[in-house]
Write a protein that binds this DNA or RNA. Sequence first.
DNA 1: TAGCTCAGTTGGTTAGAGCAGCTGACTCTT
DNA 2: AAGAGTCAGCTGCTCTAACCAACTGAGCTA
Lengths: 226, 226
Amino acid sequence: MARDIQERIKRLIIDGRLPSGASLPTEPELMELLGVSRNSVREALKALQAMGIVEIRHGFGTYVGPMSMAPMIEGLTFRTVAGHYRGEDSLLQLLELREAVETGLIARLAGRVPEADLAELDGIVARMRTEAAAGGVRAETDRAFHATLHRGLENLLLSEVLEAFWDAFHRVRTDLVAAHADPETTVRQHEEILAAVRDGDGPRAERAVRDHFDNIRHRLRSSGER
Amino acid sequence: MARDIQERIKRLIIDGRLPSGASLPTEPELMELLGVSRNSVREALKALQAMGIVEIRHGFGTYVGPMSMAPMIEGLTFRTVAGHYRGEDSLLQLLELREAVETGLIARLAGRVPEADLAELDGIVARMRTEAAAGGVRAETDRAFHATLHRGLENLLLSEVLEAFWDAFHRVRTDLVAAHADPETTVRQHEEILAAVRDGDGPRAERAVRDHFDNIRHRLRSSGER
DNA sequence: TAGCTCAGTTGGTTAGAGCAGCTGACTCTT
DNA sequence: AAGAGTCAGCTGCTCTAACCAACTGAGCTA
């Protein structure tokens, strides 16, 4: 069965302790190794590719994938878009998910972010201010702020999951919702979060993050849907 | 290109506002509709299946998938197992992720869980106590506790993500780590969480959840790895 | 020596045939 | 007439075989 083929390829990776980027057998080799046709091999690889477990490069070979959260972004985005079109508040649910994780983490981060990261965050907020004056904060800048902030947790999985949530949210929002936040407010809220974290004031940081999300949520609700 | 086929099938679902369970065109129909060979159609469907976007039933047809977080569990599990075998602390990172989300949510839950759910939680804890006396708490019981607790958030996405994390964690733990928690302590900690939530005491609930995770983490560390 | 070309390897796509699981209508029995 | 068993048909599943397209690297040319 197809399921079985996928499992066996996974075992190749696990048992071989293969790191990301290691090369896997070619399709003909897998055919012989697993005793199935090329077609079945390819379908299994396609499924594994969709899960980020393998990476396929045309004309080059098949490799162990980065095992990032990228496939999750894809799935989350689709789920959210589909739900949105069916009249569910899927985008709000996604925002709530982000809020839950980020507020849960900020207290732990307060006062524990390395000086180097704080300096970088200063730079990002400064850039944000410039962009706000020029019309609007670029999404990439907001993303950088959150990514840099969470780097201090030294938990790659956590960082990636948060980035995945951020990504899915922004992808859906830009696709479906017209309104953007007031740039000035956005900048001020990020400044407040940064200041609170720097001071090591957990409760204040938590409040700041919550305010930030309240702001986004409010805009989302008031802007209506297209 | 294969990517393109996937996108077009997704559009069929989105543009058609198709709900989960709706039937999709058959493979021959998709061939004609998209102008590609059967093989390409199948590979695209396999990838979409891996993402939970479609569901394929042999001899019956292809349907819009449940869009659950099940594929994420798969991916997370594999990532964690692979990382573990390569000597990373991936299982601890996964636990930390769960802890972050659950501690972030518990304060919001305190005092807001419906009476019906509280009653159900009482039942689950009682069952836990019985099982603890009989040797050990079943994983399913622990899962039910957390699932019921988070039901009160009325955010399906959130519930599913948490369940996905729980699932991945337990699957990896039972596969890789021998030691199990002291049943008595486990029961007591769940009782404390429930009591704090019932009293609406946010900080106490947060402390209780943190203690619970500390306990799991401690066992994980001390038990060593196989 | 530097650059180009081309052959070989690898994945991508197509085609056609037959296998396997499920449904629903038909038929036979009671 | 009602029920159970059967079978034709649809569905997805697997295989074989051939050719296309992208990339690499060795060999040739200038």
